[in-house]
Design a protein around this nucleic acid. Structure first.
Lengths: 220, 220
DNA sequence: GAGATTATAGTACAGCGTACGAGAAAGCCC
DNA sequence: GGGCTTTCTCGTACGCTGTACTATAATCTC
């Protein structure tokens, strides 16, 4: 049976891994909207249709890309359940910030194996916490929503390397024009860092503390 | 100055409102991925390029569409701040479920005036609650993340009219195959409703209760 | 050597957003 | 009325997209 070691006309050899890895790099650099099968093939030094031997669709390629991002999250944790949950949340947050294009896809695309394993792990950690079932459920959703929501926000408001000139102008306009004073106040609160620079971790701890307190309330 | 009452060859007359409304209907029916400028023009009985007199881009049209969805949220509220926040959250959630295609766009697209007004209103309500600043901030993000995250989930797991055959099969496979037992358990927990059919409202109340308790703790 | 399998790729097609420019209809001014 | 300008509509065309279909080379199996 023919191993993936074919050449034609001296062109390099393709692999699913190689394709995914190259696509990941391109998505990181230019955003996923700019990623096309043609550009990807050119980058790989291959013909467009060669990709379709390894990938059914562009959509399934994107699924694979998102799962590739999920694979970057370290599942091993240390300490009690709050520490473990914190580590998973932070690692996921960081992986998403490393690949901002993946944030909108994260919850849109059907999860791949790595993404499922990550979810499984977080649920396992929460199960180990012996929380009341409804609190565990709330906790899971609060954590995942925090991870995704916060990442989305940091990207939306330009708190990453992805920020454009136009985006900064829009935020600036929001702050200087008098409309929506509360919104402006809120944005300022975040921009100025209100004395705490690790906002993600700060709110994360509030959530975890709340969960721990719910458990304590229940047990006393 | 020529009012928008022109015809050429007996074609109907265009308006920005008419365009947005028709596009909204098409997006609701077929999803936003299926919405193209050509199809929209055909539906309107107009030429494609006529649209570009009213709309700069397809992107800005989508922004207008999302803001059109935001405009459906009733800003008037009754009762104390928890009741008011609840009303805003529920109304937003319902508007998003009415237009599932808007859920991924909601946090991706730059907000329009209606969306800003809605955010302003929620912040105003929270400001009226006299919460400590960090709690108010946490509350705002918890609420918006809950609204968006929950809507996303209901659509992702087929809990709407948008669910496809394939999606149900995937969920079914997840439940029957033995991989990811905790995930399966979690999905079952939600599918079976765990005795509470208004899950969104249930978790929403948990958040609001938590905020109210934080305030009480602070004042005593 | 013959034939099946594995892998690569060219061509072609339908669809997309939209730049450009032409042209019709109405308003305005004299 | 006649001319000029503004407002609005739209046909054509270009470059881009994903991918169906098909051909073809290289290798494995027998």
């Amino acid at each position: 049976m023919g191993r993936p070691k074919k050449e034609r006309g001296g062109k390099p050899v393709l692999t699913l891994d190689h394709i995914v890895e190259t696509a990941l790099g391109m998505a990181d650099e230019q955003g996923i909207a700019q990623l096309s099968m043609r550009k990807l093939a050119t980058e790989l030094g291959a013909g467009v249709m060669s990709l379709y031997y390894y990938v059914a669709d562009k959509d399934t390629l994107v699924e694979a890309l998102v799962d590739r991002v999920a694979s970057e999250v370290e599942l091993e944790t240390t300490g009690d359940w709050t520490a473990a949950a914190r580590q998973l949340a932070v690692a996921t947050h960081e992986a998403l910030l490393r690949h901002p294009w993946a944030i909108p896809e994260w919850s849109t695309v059907w999860p791949g194996p790595y993404r499922f394993a990550l979810t499984e792990q977080l649920l396992e950690v929460l199960a180990g916490a012996q929380l009341p079932p409804d609190v565990a459920d709330l906790g899971f959703h609060a954590l995942t929503n925090h991870i995704q929501g916060f990442a989305r926000q940091r990207v939306a408001y330009g708190d990453t390397q992805t920020d454009t000139e136009e985006m900064r102008n829009r935020v600036q306009g929001l702050l200087t024009q008098g409309d929506y004073p509360r919104v402006a106040e809120h944005v300022r609160y975040h921009v100025e860092g209100h004395g705490n620079h690790d906002e993600f971790g700060y709110v994360l701890d509030l959530i975890l503390d709340g969960l721990a307190r719910s458990k304590a309330d229940c047990q006393q």
